[in-house]
Design a protein around this nucleic acid. Structure first.
Length: 293
DNA sequence: ATCCAGGATGTAT
DNA sequence: ATACATCATGGA
């Protein structure tokens, strides 16, 4: 394994790796000191996180003002891309409106970045998310990797890549129910099939945000909320605001003028209110609201 | 035991 | 368009 460090001193807004990887954005990283997946109780400020990306094992941890990595090849570009290290967090914070709730959330998790996941794993992760707690979503993605992922052995340890569309298309509803996906099992199988067969290829996704969101809702198990998650966490649409139950409640109480009942109307109103980095605000609010109690 | 979780779908109005 | 029941699973 090669290893190296990425300096963080000159990074605008800094980095909080733990918050970035444990705030329910990406379900593709596992903390190596976890005996079970998705547990965020113990402090892990300097913990290693690992994933399989582009067929390579990548491990990263934050300490002493650097992002340290171990990988089979140089992971600098990969980490810079996946963790959005070039996002100007100071400018993003400046561009967001000033209000007490948002200020508290931004201050509490300074350095947290929106992750940039690969499309298919992100899509499947959030198809698994409805009516599920964050730790269980981690658990389901872990089960999918262990069961259907391509194994990679490095230094006597075996890792599993996220399964391909073809591999998941080749499963059955019963197979996936056995992994604990519940009623989302047929959604995952059908969506994988739509992509693998070319019936609804991901290469047809429009570049613009709202058309992209509309395209995504054609997949099975994808409504507006899940589509917004994929737009934000995989498709570079930083204005996308996933309206989950936490954020909807926050909008109703904190931005009542933006609450229009219907998803598309509230979505447009909150984006008009928060601006081009609305998705960043959503990510901070979601993490903050879920953890302040 | 009962309730609830990063909602989506099918059906009836 | 909008309202409502239904959908698995596990942890509190």
């Amino acid at each position: 394994m090669e290893h190296g460090t990425i300096p963080l001193e000159d990074l605008s807004g800094g980095l909080d790796l733990q918050s970035t990887l444990e705030s329910g954005q990406s379900y593709l990283w596992t903390r190596t000191d976890h005996d079970s997946y998705g547990q965020t109780g113990a402090y892990g400020g300097n913990a290693w996180y690992e994933t399989v990306a582009d067929g390579e094992v990548v491990r990263a941890r934050q300490r002493d003002g650097v992002l340290e990595w171990q990988a089979t090849t140089d992971a600098t570009d990969l980490l810079t891309h996946r963790l959005r290290l070039t996002d100007d967090l100071q400018e993003i914070t400046r561009a967001l409106p000033q209000d007490p709730l948002l200020d508290q959330a931004l201050t509490a998790y300074q350095g947290m970045r929106v992750t940039r996941d690969p499309f298919f794993p992100c899509l499947i992760s959030f198809i698994c998310s409805p009516q599920m707690r964050v730790p269980r979503i981690y658990q389901m993605q872990h089960a999918l990797r262990q069961t259907y992922g391509e194994p990679i052995t490095v230094d006597d340890r075996t890792y599993y890549a996220y399964p391909t569309p073809a591999r998941l298309a080749d499963t059955t509803e019963a197979d996936l129910r056995a992994l604990g996906l519940g009623y989302r099992a047929p959604y995952v199988q059908r969506t994988a099939e739509l992509i693998a067969s070319g019936e609804l290829p991901s290469t047809d996704i429009p570049d613009e945000y709202e058309p992209a969101r509309s395209h995504l809702t054609q997949y099975v198990g994808v409504g507006m909320k899940v589509a917004d998650c994929v737009c934000l966490f995989a498709l570079d649409h930083l204005e996308a605001v996933p309206l989950d139950t936490w954020v909807q409640t926050a909008i109703a109480t904190h931005y009542p003028g933006c609450d229009h009942g219907a998803y598309p109307d509230t979505s447009r109103a909150i984006r008009d209110r928060l601006g081009p980095y609305a998705g960043y605000a959503q990510t901070y609010l979601f993490h903050y609201l879920r953890h302040r109690f």
